[in-house]
Design a binder for these strands. Structure first.
Length: 216
DNA sequence: CTCCCGATAT
DNA sequence: ATATCAGGAG
């Protein structure tokens, strides 16, 4: 397992590699971020942005998503994948927003998870990015990177990963570290071909050292 | 655990 | 052909 000093070394190096890591889901308000994040499940953010570019011109408010048929909304987001569930969730979520929150996205993680299609990860993204509330959303990249490094156990749940990250990272760094973990996982410590030979974290990485010893 | 699911990279 | 992608619900 990584020591505290080793983890802070990782945070420093990721800051060096990706100093401008940020949310790559294009949005102009909390509602757009909520929809974009819901759409991003099992889909690249590049594809999400391609769809929302036209989607957000057609649908501005929750009412707009309820004004069309489910089939029409499905067609508008079909290229995203999982489009039947996502279309249904967007309409149900819009209805709940109007009836219980006057159409405004609540700045509260636990309230957000009561919305259909919104789990802990999506809720953490929204409160963190849209409302500057400290949170660490554990997506596929964050989970993979923290487990490869050895900060977490391979058998840990995403909630356990989140708790470990919150415990071992100063709260003022949560948002930045969260995005740097994603950039590091997306562009360097990739799922299929991680670039271990050129990795500045190799010296402290459990999985990296194992992979490199196999090559030699 | 399974299902949902199209686009892209390997 | 197969793996993966800013997951969530039953």
């Amino acid at each position: 397992m990584l020591t505290k000093a080793q983890w802070h070394y990782c945070l420093d190096e990721m800051e060096r590699m990706f100093p401008d890591a940020h949310c790559e889901l294009v949005h102009e308000n909390p509602f757009e971020l909520l929809v974009a994040t819901l759409l991003s499940a099992q889909c690249t953010d590049v594809l999400v942005n391609k769809v929302t570019k036209t989607l957000f011109q057609k649908y501005k408010k929750p009412e707009d998503y309820l004004a069309v048929s489910i089939e029409e909304l499905q067609t508008d987001i079909r290229s995203i994948g999982l489009y039947r569930n996502k279309a249904k969730n967007i309409q149900a979520l819009s209805k709940q927003l109007i009836e219980l929150y006057d159409g405004e996205v609540p700045a509260n993680r636990d309230l957000l998870t009561t919305f259909p299609g919104v789990g802990r990860k999506t809720a953490n993204v929204v409160v963190s990015v849209a409302f500057d509330i400290p949170a660490i959303a554990v997506d596929t990249h964050v989970e993979r990177v923290t487990k490869r490094l050895g900060l977490c156990r391979w058998k840990d749940s995403v909630l356990q990963v989140e708790e470990t990250l919150m415990k071992k990272t100063p709260i003022e760094l949560w948002s930045k570290a969260h995005h740097q973990l994603i950039f590091f996982g997306r562009y360097h410590c990739k799922a299929q071909n991680p670039n271990c030979p050129e990795c500045p974290l190799l010296a402290v990485c459990r999985e990296g050292k194992k992979r490199m010893s196999k090559i030699v």
